[in-house]
Write a protein that binds this DNA or RNA. Structure first.
Lengths: 141, 141
DNA sequence: ATGTATGCAAAACATTTGCACCTGG
DNA sequence: CCAGGTGCAAATGTTTTGCATACAT
């Protein structure tokens, strides 16, 4: 079923690519790093190299199949591109990520860009905070 | 004059720290990487090591003297913290950065966080686009 | 068959750290 | 004088790459 997505991207349908897509699908909203994908697959007994994961994720990004985020932390995380754009709010304590979109904000961004003489290509809004998990509400930074 | 800022941060006033602050001040709105600061100082004939720049920038960040951004590109950039929060709109072609704030957006973020059960600590909004420089308007991605 | 993909190991970056020496207060 | 700061070089962590082998079409 996901063979189509890969072929549409002009890539050969291979086991590593299918497995990586599977992991991303299973992870849903959760954002995973290349290392995460690697660990998950190794744990499942798959044979794959980290280099392949990086290569494939980059190809998927180019094909708009996945989105790469550079949140804080010095490493990139990926999520499946499910079509509609969304922003993120994430918990600085437990790392939980929630997606959202807001028409008011989207609209204002267009206006601001126009005022500044910019033509928007993309944007990234990340809100950092503490989620309502009791531990996170009070825990250390 | 900037001695005060450094002392307030509980740090000794040293030549490297003063020079780094100077560079950040001179750069104004422009965001610089650790490497940028290093190159600028070396070019000015200063003797300083990259390690010191990383150490000092991190200390300045802790002291809220500078702000660290993780835009796309795998490396961090820094800017002087001039007190008032602001967001960024940056040109994907020439790299120009313009700062802005928008009350409507700020307000909506608070509401969204509340809806999601989050207590906001910080947020980062970056709009990527092409600025009104003719080359950027049409140039390649 | 043949152009791509993959694995491995090495390289390339950005950033951090251990340690001996230097310096500001 | 002495805690703290700095330079250097080596270590780290993430991501990329060269090359020989393996695979999809």
């Amino acid at each position: 079923m996901e063979d189509v997505e890969i072929r549409k991207a002009g890539l050969k349908v291979t086991v590593p690519r299918l497995k990586i897509l599977e992991v991303l699908e299973k992870c849903g909203d959760q954002h995973v790093s290349a290392e995460d994908v690697y660990k998950i697959l190794i744990q499942q007994g798959e044979e794959i190299s980290l280099a392949t994961i990086y290569r494939v994720l980059t190809q998927f990004e180019t094909a708009q199949l996945v989105i790469r985020h550079n949140f804080e932390g010095g490493f990139a995380v990926f999520e499946l591109n499910r079509g509609e754009h969304h922003d993120h709010i994430l918990c600085v304590v437990c790392g939980k990520v929630v997606e959202f979109t807001d028409d008011v904000i989207e609209q204002r961004q267009l206006e601001i860009a126009k005022e500044m003489g910019f033509e928007i290509e993309d944007h990234s809004l990340v809100i950092y905070g503490r989620c309502n998990n009791p531990e996170c509400k009070m825990g250390k930074a």
